[in-house]
């Protein structure tokens, strides 16, 4: 299983703060995972259309080529605006 988290505006547009799913076959990196999640249709369409979406794997920011493994915690979120 992998744990997926959504934050801020992305969380609101999806209508969920996260989900747990089995690691889909053939999904080995962030870009493929994002495409897989978005391909399920609404309400996950914004995963495909959101600009500058950021990703963290196990609470570290990564780029789209980062590997995804069973047991990972993966977070998708808009660019940060703290401070």
């Amino acid at each position: 299983m992998i744990k997926i988290l959504y934050f801020a505006g992305l969380r609101e547009s999806i209508g969920s703060s996260g989900e747990e799913i089995a690691l889909p076959p053939g999904v080995s990196d962030i870009a493929r995972l994002r495409a897989h999640l978005a391909a399920r249709g609404e309400p996950w369409g914004s995963l495909a259309t959101a600009r500058n979406l950021r990703t963290a794997v196990n609470q570290r920011m990564v780029d789209e080529g980062a590997a995804v493994q069973d047991g990972d915690e993966i977070a998708f979120f808009p660019p940060v605006t703290g401070g």
Binding site: F7, A8, N52, A56, M61, P78, V80, T81, G82, G83
Partner: peptide, 26 residues
């Protein structure tokens, strides 16, 4: 530290105005 916090720390601001709420753009 402030410059890096603004771009790397996972915080998000949502402003509430009379017209409703909206997420602050980076």
């Amino acid at each position: 530290i402030m410059d890096y916090l603004k771009t790397r720390a996972p915080f998000w601001k949502k402003e509430e105005t009379r017209d409703g709420g909206h997420w602050v753009d980076a």
